[in-house]
Simulated assay, not measured.
Amino acid sequence: MSWSARFERLRTRTETRFPVVAELTGRLLSANLLDAATRLAAQAFLASIPLLFAVAAFTPSAVRDQLRESLRGIFGLTGQADLELQQVLGNTSGDLRETSGVIGLALALVSATSFSRAMARVCERAWQLPKASTRIAAWRWLVWLLALVLFVLLQAPVRDGFGAGMWLGAPLLFLLSTGVWLWTQHLLLAGRVAWLPLLPGALLAAAATNTLALSARLYMPAALNRALGEYGSLGLVLTLLSWLILVCAAITFAVTIGAVAAQEPPLNRLLDRGRGTHLKVPDDSAIPDDSARDGA
């Protein structure tokens, strides 16, 4: 028997014994997840710029200092990269506030909700749900964005275990991340999926993002300083965007894998599907392509 025949036989046997494997393989291959992750990363980067300047212009110095410490903790910033961040967040003059203005702040928040919309599309595709109407979802985009900013602000004290150290901070951050991703899916899906089936995706997303955050502290400081030294601001942009693509790909795959696991045996029996949980979309509720969604 050839190797290809043996592999096909093993695959068929595995899919027969574990239906979740067949469903997961099909979903991962058909959902264009890498394309969705790249879009999500691009929107995350475009949203972070106006939000960073909004924080620098309109928040007290204590908030700016807290954000700087959190970003330094996430990326382990040192040297030139840390000085660049300090230059943006250390602007205490009124020039930036006058340039931005209240209208500019409002426009920055509205434009930054494109990241929220991209995240909502990732969750909807993972659960095979149609796009929620703008009337229902619009306020959720803004609330999620503001909550994400708060989550980033809390990174430094939580990671330090509120002074106790990493032995307490690491599990606390994992629990907080799990709660954030659980709430994120429920909010952006407009409550169409119950809480408990969302837990596998939340756990996977928390594990992935915390692992990448730990690796970022080891890799990003030298990479950012080298990129700044060789290519200037363009090198900084490319390095951050590359890291965001990796993070968003991990989140996209984690949410999708969690959704499939919650819908297939054996987890679907453990997660109590009988309490109004909408895990499948009827066949006549086709999911539009991303291009159709963007044009909606």
Rank of each mutant, 00 (worst) to 15 (best):
S2T: 08
S4A: 06
S4H: 00
A5P: 00
A5L: 01
A5I: 00
E8G: 00
E15F: 09
T16L: 06
T16D: 01
F18D: 11
P19C: 05
V20L: 10
A22W: 00
L24A: 01
T25Y: 08
T25H: 05
L28F: 11
L29Y: 07
S30C: 04
A31P: 08
L33Y: 10
L33H: 08
D35Y: 12
L40P: 03
L40F: 11
L40A: 14
A41E: 07
A47W: 13
A47F: 12
F53I: 06
V55C: 09
S61H: 11
V63H: 03
Q66G: 11
Q66A: 15
Q66V: 09
Q66L: 13
S70V: 10
R72H: 15
G73R: 15
G76P: 10
L77M: 15
G79Q: 05
G79F: 05
G79W: 02
A81L: 05
A81C: 06
D82R: 15
L83Q: 14
E84M: 11
L85P: 05
V88S: 04
L96P: 13
T99D: 05
S100G: 08
I103W: 09
L105S: 04
L105T: 02
A108N: 07
L109Q: 03
A112M: 08
T113W: 03
F115A: 15
M119C: 15
E124D: 11
W127D: 07
Q128E: 15
Q128A: 10
L129V: 10
T134I: 04
R135D: 15
W139H: 15
L145S: 10
L145K: 05
L146D: 07
L150E: 10
L150P: 00
Q155W: 14
A156I: 01
P157H: 08
F162N: 09
A164P: 04
G165A: 05
L168F: 02
G169H: 02
A170T: 10
L173K: 01
L176T: 05
S177I: 03
T178W: 04
G179R: 06
L182A: 04
L188N: 08
A190P: 09
A190K: 14
V193C: 04
W195D: 04
P197T: 09
L198E: 00
L199C: 05
P200V: 00
G201Y: 00
A202M: 01
A202C: 03
L203M: 12
L204C: 14
A205P: 03
A207C: 13
N210Y: 09
L212F: 07
A213R: 02
S215W: 15
S215D: 11
A216I: 06
M220E: 00
A222H: 12
E230K: 02
S242C: 15
L246S: 08
I251V: 13
F253G: 06
F253D: 02
A254V: 07
T256H: 11
I257K: 13
I257D: 00
V260P: 02
V260R: 02
P265Y: 01
P266T: 01
L267E: 07
N268C: 11
L271Q: 03
G274I: 00
R275C: 00
T277I: 02
L279R: 00
V281N: 14
P282H: 04
D284E: 14
D284S: 11
I287W: 11
D289P: 06
D294Q: 14
D294Y: 12
